[in-house]
């Protein structure tokens, strides 16, 4: 199982999303999970496609093609740029 964390305002859009997903080791990526989310949660997937959205796996910022494994925690982080 891979645990999903939607940080900040993404949590509001992901209220209906199951926070655990089953994937084949090494086959799933953050990008693939975003595409899977788009099938049922279009507004969330649209927000995840915004520029500067970051993903972390086990508290390490990674690229969207990072292979995921059983037990990983995948976090989606919305862009924050204002000052």
């Amino acid at each position: 199982m891979i645990d999903l964390l939607f940080f900040g305002r993404l949590g509001d859009l992901a209220a209906e999303v199951d926070r655990s997903v089953t994937c084949v080791d090494g086959r799933a990526t953050p990008l693939a999970i975003r595409e899977w989310l788009a099938t049922e949660h279009q507004s969330l997937a649209k927000e995840l496609s915004e520029p500067q959205v970051l993903v972390s796996v086990n508290k390490m910022i990674v690229k969207w093609d990072q292979p995921l494994f059983d037990g990983d925690e995948l976090a989606f982080l919305p862009p924050v740029t204002g000052g």
Binding site: G8, R9, P78, P79, V80, T81, G82, G83
Partner: peptide
């Protein structure tokens, strides 16, 4: 640092 809405970095 940066911030928007309720969030900061």
């Amino acid at each position: 640092a940066a911030a928007v809405g309720w969030e900061g970095q």
